[in-house]
Design a protein around this nucleic acid. Structure first.
Lengths: 339, 339
DNA sequence: GTGAAAGCGCTAACAC
DNA sequence: GTGTTAGCGCTTTCAC
C-alpha cells in the first residue's frame, strides 16, 4: 500500500515549489504564471494521479464541498425523488451529498445535525421533525448555513423553501369540481405539519368558494402512508351512504393505497371514484390507472436550497427568506367527468 | 456571525492545555486523567457547544468518517433500499454516507470516484457500471478501501459482496414448478451483468433439473425497468399460443410492469398467470396482488461491506474476499397451484 | 512569476 | 496527569 500522494510530491516531480502547485490548482488564480511552469505542474499531477485533499483545503477556509440533507422518511418516494434531484444539483457543482434519514425521530435528527456539524458541511438542507428555534439560531451563529424545507420553525431566522401546498389543495379540488363532482372526500395527514394543513385548507376553501358543503364525515385523518390510505378508504367506503364520487388524497402514497382498497372491493377507478393525489411520485405515472396528481416543484426547491447555501456562504445570511413555488396539476386517468 | 469554536477555546475556558482537551475527546485514551480535569473540560465543551472538526482530526490520521456509495440507478427501489440500510449501518457507527448515482454512466461514475477520492472518504462501496481493473488497483494502491457489490471486475484485487443470484433463480423457478407449472416464461435483463446471467442460469438449470424444456421463445430480454416488464409481457401474451402459465421476472419492477400488462388485458393474477419477482422491494408487498418474490440479503451486504471497509482500514487489505449471501423466497399471493 | 513560511484545528510523541 | 511541540496537506501573505 503506497502512501498518499500530496502536493509536495507533485512539486518535487515538477521541480517547483508547493505554492506554485497550489496556484495552478486554484481556478481563480488571478496570478500570472509562465505557461511552461503550468505545463510541468499539470504533467506531474497527471503522472502521479494526484487529487487535492479537500479536507486540507477546507481547513484553510475553502468549504468542504459537502452538503447534508436531512429528511424525515427516506422510504417515502417523494423524499427519494427530492434527494435524487438534489444530488444532481450537487453533482453539477462538484459537491457531495450526505444523506441522513431522521426517521421522524428527533433524537436521530439531532444526532445527524451533530455529525454534519462535525463534518463542517457547507450547508444543511432539512425537512425537520423537531428542531427548535434556539438550536437553529445556534447553528446560524456558528456559521452553518441551514435551509428549511416544507416545514417552518417560527421564530428562527432561517430561509425556508416551500411548496405552495395551499395552491395544490385548491388545484386538486377545483379539478374535481370542474369535472362535475359535488361530494368530494379527502384523506388527510395528521395535521401536525404545515403542508398537510395547507393542502387541506386549499381543499375546504375551494369547496366553499364553489358553494359546496364541507362535510367533516368525508375527511379522514391518518399518516401519509400507503397503509393508511388503504385503511381509511375502506372506512370511507363502509359508510358510503354519504355517496361521494371523488377523493382527494394528501399524497400519492395514500392515493395508491386508497386505489387498492377500491379495486379490492370490486369498484372501478375512475368510473366509481375519481381520485387526485399529491406529489407526483414516479410510481403514480405507472399505477393502474395512472394517477392524476399535483406535482411539487422539487427541482426548484432543490436548486433554491442549494443556491441559497452558496450565497449564504459567500455573503452571509441576508434576511429571512421565504420562498414559495407553485404546484402543478398533472392530469392522468384517475378522474372522470360526471354530471 | 460568531467565529467557529475550536479546541483552543475549550482549553482556555477550562483552564487546561489543548492536549488535555484532545485526550478527553479520545475514547481510547488509555491515559489516566484526574476526574476534576475531565469534568472541567466536559463542562467547557458543553458550555461552548463545541464539536471537534473531523477534517482536522482526519488530517492527523483518523478517518473522515464518511463512506461513499456509488450506485447505477438511484430510482430503482432496490438500490434505494440498499442505500437506506447502508445509511442505517453508518449511522450506528457515526459515519456519514455520501450517495452518488452514476446513472449507468461511466463518466459520471469516474467523476464521482474522483470526488470521493478528493474527499478522502474512508471507503467506497460501489455497484460499478464500468470501472476497470487498473483503475481499481490504483485506488487500492492509494489506500482507499473499495468494495464491489453485485458486479465483479475480473483481475481486480477487491472484495466483492454478492447476492447468490443463481440460488435465487433456482428458488423462484422451483417454487413455480412445485406449484405444478410446466411452462414458465422469463423476463430477463440484458445479460450484461453477472447478476442477470446467474439468475437466468438458475432458472434454466432448475427447469432442466426437473425434466422441463427450456423454450427460448419464452425468454425475453430487456432492461430491468417497469416499462420493459410491461412491454415484454405484452409481447409474450401476443403469441400466447405457447400457453405458458407462469412467469419469472428478474426483478420486481419488471414483475410489476408485467402484472400491469396482464391486468390490462383483462386477465387475472394468479388465476391466469403465476408470477415471481426478484428483490423484494417494499412496493411488492403492497401491489395487487402482493408479489411472491426473492429477497436479496441487503442487510448482510450492507453490513458486510461496511465491516470490510473498517477491517481494511485497520489491518490493510488481506486477500481477495468474495462473499456470497443467500436469497430467500418470499411467498405472497401472486402464484397459484395448478395441475 | 515563483518560493518561503505561517497557520487552519487537531493528535501524538515527548517532556516534565 | 498535564503541557509543549511538530506536523497532517493545503492556501495565502509576503518577499524577491
Amino acid at each position: 500500500m503506497r502512501t498518499r500522494v500530496t502536493i509536495r510530491d507533485v512539486a518535487k516531480k515538477a521541480g517547483v515549489s508547493i505554492s506554485t502547485v497550489s496556484r495552478v490548482l486554484s481556478p481563480q488564480a488571478n496570478d500570472y504564471m509562465r505557461e511552461e511552469t503550468r505545463g510541468k505542474v499539470l504533467g506531474a499531477i497527471k503522472e502521479l494521479d494526484y487529487r487535492p485533499d479537500i479536507r486540507a483545503q477546507s481547513l484553510r477556509g475553502r468549504g468542504t464541498r459537502i452538503v447534508g440533507l436531512v429528511m424525515p422518511d427516506a422510504l417515502n418516494p417523494f423524499y427519494q425523488e427530492l434527494a435524487y434531484v438534489l444530488e444532481e444539483v450537487c453533482y453539477r457543482e462538484k459537491y457531495g451529498l450526505l444523506v441522513c434519514s431522521s426517521k421522524n425521530s428527533i433524537t436521530r435528527e439531532l444526532t445527524y445535525i451533530d455529525l454534519l456539524e462535525s463534518q463542517k458541511v457547507d450547508g444543511i438542507i432539512i425537512s425537520t421533525v423537531g428542531l427548535k428555534e434556539i438550536k437553529l439560531n445556534n447553528l446560524v451563529k456558528k456559521g452553518i448555513p441551514i435551509i428549511l424545507m416544507d416545514r417552518d420553525v417560527p421564530g428562527a431566522n432561517i430561509p425556508v423553501m416551500f411548496t405552495n401546498n395551499y395552491l395544490g389543495g385548491c388545484q386538486a379540488t377545483q379539478h374535481l369540481i370542474d369535472l362535475g363532482h359535488k361530494k368530494i372526500a379527502c384523506i388527510a395527514g395528521s395535521m401536525n405539519t404545515l403542508s398537510s394543513i395547507n393542502r387541506l385548507k386549499g381543499y375546504t376553501d375551494t369547496l366553499q368558494k364553489n358553494g359546496l358543503e364541507v362535510d367533516k364525515k368525508l375527511i379522514k385523518e391518518g399518516k401519509l402512508i400507503y397503509k393508511d390510505g388503504y385503511k381509511l378508504m375502506k372506512e370511507l367506503a363502509r359508510k358510503s351512504s354519504d355517496g361521494f364520487t371523488a377523493l382527494f388524497c394528501l399524497n400519492d402514497l395514500v392515493a395508491l393505497g386508497a386505489m387498492r382498497a377500491i379495486q379490492e372491493d370490486g369498484k372501478n377507478i375512475p368510473s366509481d371514484y375519481s381520485i387526485v393525489g399529491f406529489d407526483n411520485i414516479s410510481l403514480s405515472s405507472v399505477s393502474n390507472p395512472p394517477l392524476t396528481t399535483i406535482a411539487q416543484p422539487i427541482k426548484q426547491i432543490a436548486q433554491g436550497a442549494f443556491r441559497t447555501i452558496k450565497r449564504w456562504k459567500k455573503q452571509g445570511l441576508l434576511k429571512k427568506e421565504h420562498r414559495f413555488w407553485d404546484t402543478k396539476l398533472i392530469v392522468r386517468k384517475s378522474c372522470k367527468e360526471i354530471n
